[in-house]
Write a protein that binds this DNA or RNA. Structure first.
Lengths: 208, 208
DNA sequence: TTATGTGAACCATTTCACAGCC
DNA sequence: GGCTGTGAAATGGTTCACATAA
């Protein structure tokens, strides 16, 4: 069964929350409590969790550690994905150092940039190569996923170069532009300023 | 009329695209072309744009500069929102330096952190204060919006302190945790790692 | 003839309401 | 009695299809 995107997103949230609850020694939690902590309806939580079999106990709730392991299994990766990050600017470096980007599911093996100050050095322990050599490095390392933090002006150019190398399966795009890829490349985007635009738009509406 | 969130998100995209098209000297564009460039259906583009009156010309398309100004008006802010950024780590600094965070719509007037290396200095020209003095600074400067880039572990604590100061209308949360606020505070979140999780989840599904 | 604007149909997601089990 | 699991209903958003205007 195809799992809807909003559901996957919430599964990640449940996973994080359960990790925290578990570390606090919590044993059991109800859909209502989860909902309160994540600002979701209890029925939403139950429906999400029910897609993967009956994991809760009626009249009791969900066993924290058991549910955590269960969701771990759903979100688990069959392998460690080989990733490259393209564009080692402030944002790229911030991501490299971010706790959320340390994971068992992937391994950032290469960085690409055009800045001579960075090419040839290691950043956070990862070697930085010149964009001109990206295609061969991608093939050599078997890179399958790209984190794109290059400036908007060159984002599409980078994507064209990288996908032409072959083997790229997915791109996580941080540039505030929409990029075009071959249909077999999955793209997800994080637009760091569009949420601020939305916030201000709806705040304006509240001011009257 | 209430405008749906996905529509506001796309309006921001149209706005960016039109700015670019205008700078390239483009005069007219059709819903079909806009759709192609942003990976949207033409009908979606037309519906979005029609919410705000008839702005296109039947048989012709949309006049680029006119549509750009039109959307500018829709997204316009009645004032420059006074903002503070909380948590001057790598991510916070990356945002401060990001082009997308320079805008007519707001003004980042204060930074808050607990690091003695940062408190009392200016970062990107903005003064950094200690979190302990946040409440008084927020009241003094009339801060209404918070960009939260503090570590997850203290995110909720920060939110409680900040909202208690009064006057806070909205929070843009970059911590990968869900935060709880009084109902009059609007919260939007940018989760920099959840999109990567989704990407890997669906890539796994494609591998078979 | 071409491309917009829009009601209606469609599809996806959320919420309800209650049966089922602990 | 309490809380999950789940069809059914409601809601929200997208796409279609065509009337309408340049």
């Amino acid at each position: 069964m195809r799992i809807a995107e909003p559901t996957v997103e919430r599964l990640v949230q449940y996973h994080r929350l359960l990790e925290q609850l578990s570390s606090e020694g919590r044993k059991v939690v109800s859909s209502q409590e989860i909902g309160q902590m994540l600002s979701l309806k209890a029925s939403q939580v139950r429906k999400d969790l029910s897609y993967f079999g009956e994991i809760g106990k009626r009249g009791v709730g969900y066993h924290v550690d058991r549910l955590f392991e269960h969701i771990s299994g759903i979100l688990a990766s069959p392998k460690k994905w080989p990733i490259a990050l393209v564009g080692v600017g402030r944002l790229g470096e911030a991501l490299l150092g971010h706790r959320a980007f340390r994971s068992e599911k992937f391994d950032i093996q290469a960085l690409f940039d055009v800045d001579p100050e960075k090419v040839g050095t290691n950043v956070m322990g990862i070697p930085c190569f010149h964009m001109d050599t990206a295609a061969e490095e991608i093939r050599r390392l078997g890179i399958q996923v790209i984190i794109l933090t290059a400036p908007s002006s060159v984002a599409q150019l980078c994507v064209d170069t990288l996908t032409a190398a072959g083997g790229i399966r997915g791109i996580l795009n941080f540039s505030p532009v929409s990029i075009v890829t071959p249909p077999d490349v999955l793209v997800y985007s994080v637009d760091i300023s569009v949420e601020l635009e939305k916030l201000l738009f709806y705040l304006k509406g509240r001011e009257e």
